Lab assay of single mutants.
Amino acid sequence: MSIQHFRVALIPFFAAFCLPVFAHPETLVKVKDAEDQLGARVGYIELDLNSGKILESFRPEERFPMMSTFKVLLCGAVLSRVDAGQEQLGRRIHYSQNDLVEYSPVTEKHLTDGMTVRELCSAAITMSDNTAANLLLTTIGGPKELTAFLHNMGDHVTRLDRWEPELNEAIPNDERDTTMPAAMATTLRKLLTGELLTLASRQQLIDWMEADKVAGPLLRSALPAGWFIADKSGASERGSRGIIAALGPDGKPSRIVVIYTTGSQATMDERNRQIAEIGASLIKHW
């Protein structure tokens, strides 16, 4: 067993022997300050990975656009099909120029040879490739089937209704393509630590998230040396920005953090900075 597999395998073990964890309200002060700075709603939740206990939250049951954070859930659904023998990570999918949508930095380079399901999930999570996400959605039956998968997991909140890039419209009070911080955190925890996926698939999912290449300005920018993070960011219209992450010190994840914001007129750089500052406060008061 590799060191990485050993780390994931021990998560349920540590759950039975973990020391108590305590929240620090200073982080919530920073979350509220971020709302003021951005002139927008901010949703935040911090969940103990082992016990599932909510350590701190702000607007945990308000809806926010999922943006590209849905791609982790999508690849979780794909992996569940792999575990059930209904899909193969090595299966090659061919597509055409007509399938390409905006922001497809990986898939646009493989029009001649296609990409495997594994490569598409990697592109969707690590590079947030939109065409990769659409091709993967097709393999499971579309957005409604992803919503059904989540319902079967016990998540009756999170929903995907449209494809890339339309799902990023982020219209106020529109429940399409939205989640709540509490629902997303719970669902992510189930995918990473529960029995829904095999150990190999849980490890694959967290490996893809750990290799995320487009979330550098967010929580990763505040991460001390030696800390672990596996994450997925998202951005969409109407000043929306978000990130879902499993992180912790000593090279292993111990908490789930979900941050969403929407309705801001601030620049992308400012939205990134506010999320990074929330992360810095979280780490300082860990």
Rank of each mutant, 00 (worst) to 15 (best):
D113E: 12
V82Y: 05
E145K: 09
G76D: 00
Y44F: 06
L146M: 12
A211Q: 03
A132G: 02
D269N: 11
I244P: 00
F17R: 07
L167E: 02
D250L: 08
T139G: 09
V214C: 06
V29R: 11
G216Q: 12
Q265R: 13
E87F: 06
Q4T: 13
G216T: 07
T131L: 03
D231G: 03
N130Y: 05
T126P: 06
R59Q: 02
H110L: 08
R220T: 01
D36L: 03
D207E: 13
L223P: 00
G85E: 09
A225T: 12
A182D: 07
M153G: 05
D113P: 05
S2G: 09
T198S: 13
M184V: 04
R189S: 11
M127T: 09
A246K: 01
K144T: 14
N168W: 02
C75F: 01
E87A: 04
V8D: 15
E87R: 00
F228S: 02
R92P: 08
A222C: 08
E237W: 08
S57M: 10
E26D: 10
V72L: 01
G90L: 10
R91M: 02
L205I: 09
P60C: 06
G239C: 03
I54D: 02
R59S: 09
K213P: 02
G43R: 00
P25R: 07
A222P: 05
D174I: 01
E61G: 13
I244K: 00
I275T: 00
C75G: 07
T262L: 08
T69R: 00
L137R: 00
T158L: 00
D250M: 07
E237A: 15
K252A: 13
K53G: 08
L28V: 14
H285L: 04
P217A: 10
M66S: 01
L223H: 00
K30G: 01
S96L: 12
R255C: 00
K284Q: 14
G234C: 04
L47R: 02
I206G: 05
A266R: 11
S51N: 08
C75S: 04
T262D: 13
L38W: 05
K190R: 11
V214N: 06
T198R: 10
D36V: 14
G216S: 09
R63V: 03
A183S: 09
P60S: 13
H24K: 09
G43A: 02
L47A: 08
E270V: 14
R91V: 02
E62V: 05
A34G: 03
A215P: 03
A225I: 11
V78L: 05
A276E: 08
N152R: 11
E169L: 10
A84R: 11
R273L: 07
C18Y: 07
H156D: 14
L219R: 01
D207L: 13
P25G: 04
I125L: 12
E169D: 10
Q204C: 14
F228N: 01
G85V: 04
D99T: 10
L89E: 03
R189Q: 12
H24W: 03
G194M: 07
Q88P: 01
A230C: 06
D48G: 03
G85S: 10
K232Q: 00
I171S: 15
P60L: 06
T139M: 10
S57D: 05
V101A: 08
S104K: 00
H156E: 14
A200F: 07
T179K: 00
T116A: 05
L199G: 15
L167V: 11
G239A: 02
D177N: 02
H5E: 07
R63G: 01
E35D: 07
L282V: 12
A246Y: 08
L223N: 00
L55G: 02
G216W: 05
G194N: 09
G85C: 08
E102S: 15
A280S: 13
S233G: 11
V117T: 06
P224Q: 02
I45L: 12
M180G: 11
L167C: 10
P12V: 14
Q4A: 11
M180S: 15
R159E: 02
D155N: 09
N168E: 07
T193S: 13
S281G: 03
Q97S: 15
I3V: 07
R162W: 01
R189T: 07
I256S: 00
L197I: 06
E277N: 11
I125T: 02
K213Y: 07
R41E: 06
P105G: 02
P165Q: 03
C75I: 09
V8L: 14
E175Q: 12
P172I: 10
H94R: 12
L38H: 05
R91H: 09
D83C: 01
L89D: 02
K144G: 14
G226A: 04
F22I: 07
P217V: 06
K284D: 05
T178C: 03
L199R: 15
V21D: 06
M67A: 08
E195R: 09
D250G: 14
E195A: 07
V157I: 13
R220S: 01
K53T: 11
G52C: 02
T262H: 08
R238K: 13
E237N: 15
V72A: 05
T187R: 04
R92E: 07
E26G: 10
T126L: 04
S80V: 10
E102M: 14
S96R: 13
A246T: 07
P25A: 04
P253C: 07
T261Q: 06
D48H: 03
Q88I: 12
E270A: 07
A200V: 11
G251L: 07
R238D: 13
E277W: 02
Y260S: 00
Q88W: 13
A280G: 09
W227F: 02
S233A: 11
I243C: 03
S221K: 14
S240T: 06
E164G: 00
G90A: 14
F13V: 11
I206K: 10
I3L: 13
V257A: 02
Q4P: 08
C121G: 03
E56S: 07
I125C: 06
G242Q: 00
W208L: 03
A266Q: 10
G43V: 09
K32S: 07
F6Y: 09
K144Q: 06
C18L: 06
K30E: 11
V157R: 10
S128R: 00
T267A: 11
W286R: 00
T267K: 08
D250I: 04
F149T: 06
A230G: 07
M180L: 08
A9T: 15
S240H: 15
L199P: 15
D174G: 03
T126D: 09
G154H: 04
I3S: 06
R41S: 06
Y44V: 03
A133T: 10
A235E: 03
E169W: 08
A276V: 09
Q86K: 12
S240R: 01
S240L: 03
A245S: 05
A77E: 07
A148D: 15
Y260L: 11
S240M: 03
E119G: 10
G234V: 00
T186Q: 13
Q204E: 06
S236D: 06
L55T: 03
R220C: 12
I278T: 00
M127R: 08
A225N: 15
H94G: 08
